[in-house]
Design a protein around this nucleic acid. Structure first.
Length: 258
DNA sequence: ATGGCTGAGCTACTCAGA
């Protein structure tokens, strides 16, 4: 089972790139963030034509998450946490891999910049709620995958110039501690587990030739609960979509679980 | 270097992203 996660930065602006990606990589499931549209304008038919069902939690203009899947996803929910600003940032569903029922939690964590504003408080509260709800869910099911755009740089190695981000909402210690708190519940940052010293990124700014200079950061993650650790055969950052014409500023991360 | 670009909504320009 191949599961991809990709902040697409608008599903409608990106539809050609997304279809090309799906046809090349054939993920069983594609977790999307920042679809930037309401459910009724989501290009469901284009997705259906290539054999995927869409489960959508949209919003006008901003945010929005979706699960695209070759097979039916059960028990889809959009209220895993309550969002203080009623933004569409989390969608969950259930899949089965080798008789294991797995909860998939697809998230788009708030950016939180600038710090010292309500936006930063919102991010902290969002993380607090996420940690609380995940902890609760773990008591019912020890098979959980949390994936998406975390807007968190876990460690210094995960950004081209850490100094520039140590006081940013993506790199502040207080935020990175929340990420560790999540791991300490019994999760694994599977990319880092499998690539101890590798410096790869999932996001490059549109400005100033960031992509060409490889000024990026690793902020899109797959967190795998301990019980599933041995079922993961590979995890890859696929840079190809970021190199295309009219790209998203993020590139997909791909998980193989059997 | 709190932004040099991009997208949405809309049709001029603001908001948001990270």
């Amino acid at each position: 089972m191949k599961i991809s996660s990709w902040n697409v930065n608008s599903i409608r602006a990106r539809i050609d790139n997304i279809i090309q990606y799906i046809q090349e990589e054939k993920p069983d499931i594609l977790l999307c963030q920042e679809i930037k549209t309401q459910d009724q304008f989501f290009p469901k038919e284009d997705i259906k034509k290539i054999g995927y069902e869409s489960y959508i939690f949209g919003q006008k203009s901003y945010n929005g998450v979706a699960i695209l899947s070759k097979h039916e996803i059960k028990n889809v929910t959009k209220n895993f946490i309550s969002d203080d600003l009623n933004q569409s940032r989390i969608i969950t569903g259930e899949i089965e891999v080798k008789k294991k029922k797995i909860d998939i939690i697809n998230i788009y964590i708030p950016n939180g910049n600038p710090v010292n504003t309500e936006k930063y408080i919102y991010k902290k509260n969002w993380l607090k709620k996420l940690i609380f709800s995940v902890k609760k869910r773990l008591m019912k099911n020890s098979n959980i995958i949390i994936a998406g755009d975390f807007n968190i740089i876990p460690e210094e190695i995960d950004v081209y110039d850490f100094k520039r981000y140590e006081n940013d909402a993506l790199g502040k210690l207080e935020i990175r501690k929340k990420f560790r708190e999540l791991l300490n519940l019994g999760f694994n940052d599977i990319y880092r587990i499998k690539n101890k010293d590798k410096q790869e990124y999932t996001f490059w700014d549109y400005f100033a030739g960031s992509w060409q200079k490889n000024y990026g950061m690793r902020i899109d993650h797959f967190l795998i609960s301990n019980n599933l650790l041995n079922d993961v055969s590979s995890v890859k950052i696929n840079k190809k979509p970021r190199s295309r014409v009219k790209p998203s500023d993020h590139t997909p991360i791909e998980l193989e679980i059997n």
